[in-house]
Amino acid sequence: MNKMKLDIKKEDIPSIVLNYFKRNIPLIGLIVIVIMLMILSPSFLTKYNIISVLRQGSINGLLAFGVTIVIISGGIDLSVGSTLAFTGMIFAKAIVDGIPAPIAFVIALIAGAIIGAINGVLISRGKLQPFIATLGSMMVFRGLTLYISNGVPVSRLGDTGFAAWIGRGYFLGIPIPAIMLIIITIAFAFFLSKTVFGKRIYAIGGNAKGAKLSGINVKRNIVYIYMISGLLAAFAAVILVSRLDSAVPTAGISYELNAIAAAVIGGTSLTGGKGKASGTLIGILIIAVIINGLNLLGTSAYLQQIITGLIIIFAVIADRKK
């Protein structure tokens, strides 16, 4: 391999650079956007603003990592927004009912995992297409959230303790949600590249029949994959509820689409088998930076959707070209 590197001729160097660009279009896109915003807005590159970008990106980020592994496995999860609303409501109601916040947190996580397991079983055992199964559960859990809350937000969970800390706290001057985003990114990078389970997700998404013939228990693994997605949605829910000090039954509407957008911008292929934690992080940051930048520039909030939409289309075309 080293020998091969020495053999590279001079005229190959531009093509190597070009190849590097082609392989890292999302990263380069992010850098270009950041540079543009630095020029356009002096307050963009302040510590306060960067922290605020990370905090804004954290909710979408947690959802996006769950959705990323689902998409890598060849599926889709439309239910994460509703799961977020439902588990957030459970978290808030539990606290209001006097259950200690850490225990309420665990209850919410379990609820999220159960919703994921239902999705997974419907897909693997019930042989439903992931789109259909999770579209159904998206509507069911949105309805359930509205039903158990009577459509009314549950607020005032307290200004101290875990319930306030997880969404509003700081560690070394960095908001806890931002820290969570960083931890989850590192965990997923490790999980996807270094673990047996991670590799199996790629194998299942890349060639499900081949995965089965290699001895992978595809059905069971699919259940686990959707459980992780549900679990992360519940985690995001707790952070969101804590940050707003309120569980809103209409929270998280269309969040699933932002999560899918982040994954796709980061190079995850909807046909399965392809995707990286670093890519999804870049996708999350691109979306967060654009929202933040347009706010700083004082432009219309509606522009943000137009730009995100164009970026998705461009990212996928660019991905196919390489």
Partner: peptide, 27 residues
Amino acid sequence: LNLFTDMTVLENLFICKESSKLGIINK
């Protein structure tokens, strides 16, 4: 052929027979 074309040569060679400890691959 029953290969995973998006995965690397090494990953393909060891799919489902990984050398691993506690689920972490020993590359």
